[in-house]
Each structure stands twice: as C-alpha cells, then as structure tokens.
Amino acid sequence: MSEPVEWQDDQNIEFVSLIAGGQGFCIEITEIREIRRWSPVTPLPFSQPDVLGVMNLRGSVIPIIDLSAKLGLGAITPTARHVIIVVVLSDRTVGLLVDAVSEILTIQGENIRSAPNTGQTNDIRSIRGLVEVGDGMSRVIDLRILFNDSCDLVA
C-alpha cells in the first residue's frame, strides 16, 4: 500500500466530516467515491464482527464495514437513516457504515495536529491527526492504516 501523502502546512485539504459511534471523524475527500443510503446487505460467513456483509454497487460486490465497530466504539444497528461512505483504497472498494455525514471541511495542513498517545492499543492508530472544528474536534482517519492490519478483511 502506498505511503500517505504528506500534507504541507500551507496546503488546503478537503475532508468530509462524519459521525460514527458518537465521535466526529473526517476522511479526505479524494478517497471517497460516493455516499449512499444504507440498504440491507448480504451477510458473509466467517467474517469479523465489523464486516456487515456485501452489497451490490452497480454490479460490483463490495464489503460494508461498520466504522464504529472497527474503531472499537460499538456496533451500529443500521437503519435507513444511516449512511454508507464508499471509499477506494488502492485497488479495493469498500463501504463504511457511519451514523451520519455532516459537511465538507477545508483545513489548512498546519491545523492538523498529530494525535497524542492515550495509552490505547485499539485501532486508534488509524487516527492520523486531529483538527478543531468549531467548538468540537474531528479525527482524521487514515484509511491505509485502518485497513492495513486486515488487508484480508476475512478473519
């Protein structure tokens, strides 16, 4: 998997901000293919708990992953209100189930702070940085790290 692009301090980067497991996250817009409504998926045998199943994206079979569960924030019970963010990771297409998508953020590179170590071993490593948004905080997800450990999503 390719190395993530280094963001320059004076560079403006666009993110899509979203909510998963009650926390705010954002994903770089260039990694997102499309955003869809939740529709029922076909569950897969022998999958990890965060893999909900596969869905038909115009003829491609793509796995849908519960982002909240993947990040250790508890499984989402999907309803029609939930949203699937279809992301492209090198040669794979994967859908991420999230609670909601909020807005597009434009952030200057220097405003992205690195996430401090809080002593957690969980998939918190896939948080590439933190940004302040209004009076809250959004966590920048590094999809490569998020999926690197489980290159094969099959357990």
Binding site: T42, P45, P63
Partner: peptide, 21 residues
Amino acid sequence: ANYGAIPGVSAATILGDGKIA
C-alpha cells in the same frame, strides 16, 4: 477483488432483485 476468500464460498452473484447471493 474487494474482500477476500471465504471458506465454503467460491463467488457471489447478483439476483434479479439486485440482491447479492
């Protein structure tokens, strides 16, 4: 292509109603 090999399953197909089997 997007997921990985699953024991006991060789591939998937899309049925007439658009669902995956």
